[in-house]
Structures are given as C-alpha cells and as structure tokens.
C-alpha cells in the first residue's frame, strides 16, 4: 500500500508529486495513458510560466516537471483511473488494465475537459474539420479559411497559432468584448489575418463528410449568416473532470470539487484536490502548480497525524 496516490499529471499533479516525493512519501502518479502531461501537452509556446524568460514549449515544460518528480522518487504509471473508492481509511484506485492500487491518501488533480458547443453536427464532424486542438490539426488547413469559436486566452492563442497555416482566421465570439489577457488581445488585433466577428453564436455546422461552413446567429439582431470555412476550432472553455468522484466528494455550484477554505481538503478525510478541478476562476499552469504544492503539504500533514500503526501498513509495503 502507498502513502499517497496522485491522480493526474498536469502542473498540479506533477508539482504535488515533486513535493510528496521530497517528503519521502514515495508517491504513485497515475498519469493517464494518452493525456499525460495534461492540457499543456497541446500547447506550443508557454510565455507566462515563471522561470522561463524566453518561453518554453508546453510539452517540454511538462517533461521537465515529470523528470523533476521522478528525480525525487515519484513513480509514474501511464494508465487511466477507471474507478476510485475514496471513503474509509484505505483508498482504492482501479486502473484501465485492471490493477488495483491502495493508498492512505489521494490527491485528485484531473484538470478539466474541453467544452463542446452542443450541436449534433459538431460531434458528427469532429475530426473532419471540427477540432479542439489547433496545434494538432492546424497544419491541415494551409491556405484555408477557418473559424475559432470563443473569446478567452485559449481562443486567441489558437487563432494566432492558426495564422501560420490558414489564409484567414475568423474569431467568432458571442459577446462584444474578449475575456483574454491584454497581451494576447493586442497580438490578435494587430494580426491582419484575424477578423473578429462579434456577438455571433454558432447555430449550425455544415458539411456531409467534412466541414464546408458554419451558420452564425447574431445575438443582437437574430440575423443568420453562413461563414465559408473548412475548419472550426472550438475554444469555449473547459469543465472540471469530476466524473470519477461523483457521489463521493462534494462539488461547488460551479461544478468544481469543494475544498475547505484555502486548503486542498475535500469532503472526505485523506482526499485532497488540486489544479483546475478545484479552480473555476484562474486556471493557469502556475496557479495549478501552486495548488499542487498545497495538496502535497496537506496530504503530508494528514499522514503525519495518522496513528503509527495505520501508517506502518503503507510504509512497510512500499519499502
């Protein structure tokens, strides 16, 4: 049995792993089979993570965090958690390959999943012009016209990235101003390839086998127009990934995992949560990393206060 299992391998999970490993807790990190490293694996240049004045590629940053955690003894498993049993003194974590791991504490840092527009044709044409990942799919739209849907940081990052390939990038936003940071806004406004379409909602995605256009609804006038694009990149935010803990942990009205004050303590003893899955507001790599620190320190304190006989169960087997 382990002292602590960390579920998730984004900035929160790996930072928690670094701290837990340095506290000699020998953490096991369940990193996911295909989404290890988290959301930053799908980004290019990260310019706002402290310590990298020239910027760093998102995947490179995540490999560094992984190596730093491993250096201090964290063990990483590239599989997916399919079941979590969190009540009671011993927590059970079941993986996709059928293995069951037990621990006295769990740090839950599963991040968030991209939100969809909710249109039938969006799902049907996913992978055929509808995309959630400009860095993955942008290169297939050389000299094409594409639309990016959204008004936050990720929408503007995707729009700017897509100008490397596409002739024209429409930024479709349902409001008349952006949520994105000033630096990203300035860059996008200055880009001659990006055209902003304000107060527009996506009502339709057209195309039989691949996207041929999208139908927009003007939120002020109700007018419908068709935009001739062959790609639609959806960047309208993300929802916390809580399906594994539904019915076990208390959630907030925003859908994130409820934690006690500024701590990472969830509604169950020995279960801590960190990163975007507890954060409806900031959702930055640096805030997630800080949140991972909090979770590791909270877990360390929880373990230290357990009866020696209980703790011995974990340390005996892990050694």
């Amino acid at each position: 049995m382990r002292q602590v299992i960390i579920v998730g391998s984004g900035p929160a999970g790996y930072t928690a792993a670094i701290y837990a490993a340095r506290a000699n807790l020998a953490p096991l990190v369940i990193a996911s089979s295909v989404e290890f490293g988290g959301e930053l694996m799908k980004t290019t240049e990260v310019e706002n993570f402290p310590g990298f004045p020239e910027g760093i590629m998102g995947p490179d940053l995540m490999v560094k965090m992984q190596e730093q955690a491993e250096r201090f003894g964290a063990q990483i498993v590239y599989d997916d958690v399919v079941k979590l049993e969190l009540d009671g003194e011993v927590k059970r974590v079941t993986l996709g390959n059928g293995e069951v791991h037990e621990a006295l504490s769990v740090i839950y840092a599963t991040g968030s999943a991209y939100r969809k527009l909710g249109l039938d044709d969006e799902t049907r044409l996913s992978g055929y012009g509808v995309s959630w990942c400009a860095t993955c799919d942008g290169a297939f739209f050389k000299q094409k016209k594409v639309a990016v849907i959204g008004g936050g940081d990720s929408a503007l990052e995707e729009a700017t990235f897509l100008t490397r390939f596409a002739d024209k990038v429409y930024l479709v936003h349902r409001r008349d101003k952006l949520r994105a940071s000033a630096a990203l806004q300035d860059r996008a406004f200055a880009d001659p390839k990006i055209e902003f379409l304000w107060n527009q909602e996506v009502a339709h995605v057209y195309g039989d086998e691949k996207v041929t256009g999208i139908g927009l609804l003007d939120t002020n006038t109700g007018d419908e127009t068709t935009l001739d694009v062959t790609g639609m990149f959806v960047a309208i935010g993300a929802d916390p990934r809580t399906h594994l803990v539904h019915g076990q942990l208390e959630l907030t009205p925003e859908g994130t995992i409820a934690v006690d004050g500024r701590s990472s303590r969830t509604s169950l003893p020995g279960v801590f949560a960190a990163g975007d899955v507890v954060d409806p507001t900031y959702k930055q790599a640096a805030t997630a990393a800080g949140s991972g620190v909090v979770a590791a320190l909270d877990a360390e304190k929880y373990l230290a206060e357990l009866a020696p006989a209980v703790l011995a169960k974990a340390t005996a087997v892990a050694a």
């Binding site: 089979s33 295909v34 989404e35 694996m41 799908k42 990942c133 860095t135 993955c136 290169a139």
Partner: peptide, 8 residues
C-alpha cells in the same frame, strides 16, 4: 509535432 500522436 503532434503530442497525442506520440501518446497513442
């Protein structure tokens, strides 16, 4: 350059 490709 495709991260998910390397993962799968």
């Amino acid at each position: 350059w495709c991260g998910p490709c390397r993962a799968v």
